[in-house]
Nucleic acid binder design. Structure first.
Lengths: 291, 291
DNA sequence: CGGCCGTTTGAATGTTGTCAAGTACGGTGG
DNA sequence: CCACCGTACTTGACAACATTCAAACGGCCG
């Protein structure tokens, strides 16, 4: 529970920054969606790691579309207590509808790029492109579902379950960024304090739990690198209903993009989840070194 | 943590039930919205108290618009742990977008009426009536914000704070159902176990906390009746940022309906909140006896 | 090298859960 | 009218899990 919001966000707005960094790794889906939104956006904006994108109490007249990077949504109480609400990955919509005041803050965990869509254009989106409007609504709905998953975890699960839950979720959601491509371990730009603030635990206790999970050969998290050692056990410890794990798979990037992708819906759900966490591709293994 | 999902939901679908019960107490806003949705809905449906509206794992091809009654959204783990995610009031959209599987269940706390809107019509809504589509998205976004509020409460607040938080929230949201009308105490169709399951506490501990809050002259909750004794202290104990309390006020029914209503935006937020919780009207006091 | 940040570990403390027994209320049936 | 029952709530004693405090360690960077 450190103060967190130290670095004030510089606000460099450049048009279409992200086209310049296309070689960087980020979601194809996010790219695609961003392309369709291109006519509505006012521009792109780059946020340095550690900077705030927006803060509690602000009244914005834009929504953001996260193109690249990790962003944490969080609430910071005046006495220093912090709760992380959501880790946003590329493709996420950081949205607040006209008239709503921000009830939380957002901070970039890595350097990040967002597309800025003014509210006045939002109306146009819904009017001229109902398909996109509906997808936006669907994305927000998925976020809500994720928040509900976290509510169950924090409210009713033990520390061990919560941490396992979070790591599994992040692993699945991250992996789903590149449908078809798989990774054995991933870069997770978090500290143990972040994990604690997301799971409602103290960082000290997170340390203990992680140590146990490692000792039991389930997951390792060292040097901001997450490695799943035993997917079966992890799923087991996380105590997640398979339906819910599957919703992480399907919901995140876009409803239609992944629908016919590779998922055979007649495979038992538990098996399907295990596949997703387990299957290894050799392609793109060079990413492991990066960042 | 009882089994909860005992009573199987009977599914009587009648067309436009709610028109027949217009004299009953429910949100004007809900009514208004429902009217505009009338051409899209397949009909109305009445759910008896204690019956499930839908359950985890189901794949629905409809969304529901709650016209009347209280509905609890909850997750039920196989070992009996339960977490209540949200108390839905009239005007809420219980929505799952096409392709999404239910990741939670919903149970009526009182007898309730919902409008049923098939997914196939949902496309029409977004296409033909972007205003409504956007309002739907906005409602979902408000739900997400509420979920985030609960995440902070469960993750970072003490038992006393959490209970105060929940009661204050329900009181404000309930009162906002009838903008301009006020109530001193309200009918809260919950048991202490519901409160525990919503706040991540055991019912035993909720009992202790409620007893203390009563002894301190802050709130009373006896016999499904909630009475705010000391709004200032309650707001204080709940430890809520005024921005957040205000979002409960503005978000719930519909963005535009309450906007110009009575809110003078230049009043300090804390004062405004206090007004909302404190001001008493004599009108509609007859409701106190009902139900 | 020194300082900083993030992590690890142990010991003491504390909030909340669990268990168990008892109370209050409302409904039902004699 | 009363006895009986079930449900919800209350209360105390105890246990458990997680927090706090404190000290020490390790890598990284100036």
């Amino acid at each position: 529970m450190t103060s967190f919001a130290q670095a004030p966000s510089k606000i460099p707005i450049d048009r279409h920054i992200y086209h310049a960094s296309t070689d960087d790794l980020y979601a194809e889906c996010a790219q695609e969606m961003s392309r369709t939104m291109v006519k509505y956006k006012a521009g792109d904006r780059k946020i340095d790691a550690g900077c705030d994108l927006f803060s509690l109490g602000e009244r914005r007249n834009t929504i953001f579309y996260l193109v690249n990077g990790w962003v944490a949504l969080y609430k910071l109480h005046e006495d220093g207590r912090r709760q992380i609400l959501h880790f946003a990955l590329p493709g996420a919509v950081l949205a607040f509808f006209p008239g709503q005041v921000m009830t939380y803050s957002a901070q970039a965990l890595t350097s990040a790029i967002v597309s800025v869509i003014p509210h006045r254009n939002l109306y146009s989106v819904f009017r001229d492109d109902p398909e996109i409007g509906m997808r936006l609504a669907s994305l927000v709905s998925s976020d809500r579902n994720l928040a509900y998953d976290h509510l169950f975890a924090i409210g009713r699960q033990s520390a061990r379950e919560r941490v396992a839950h979070l790591l599994l979720e992040l692993f699945i959601r991250y992996r789903m960024q590149w449908p078809g491509h798989c990774i054995e371990d991933m870069h997770l730009p978090l500290t143990q304090e972040h994990i604690g603030d997301a799971t409602g635990l103290s960082s000290v206790h997170v340390s203990r739990v992680l140590r146990n999970l490692g000792k039991d050969g389930i997951v390792e998290f060292h040097y901001k690198r997450l490695r799943i050692l035993n997917p079966d056990k992890l799923i087991d410890v996380a105590g997640i209903d398979p339906h819910i794990a599957l919703s992480w798979v399907k919901d995140v990037p876009s409803i239609n993009a992944t629908a016919g992708h590779q998922a055979a819906t007649n495979i038992p759900i538990a098996v399907r989840i295990k596949q997703i966490v387990t299957v290894r591709f050799s392609r793109h293994s060079e990413w492991r070194g990066k960042q």
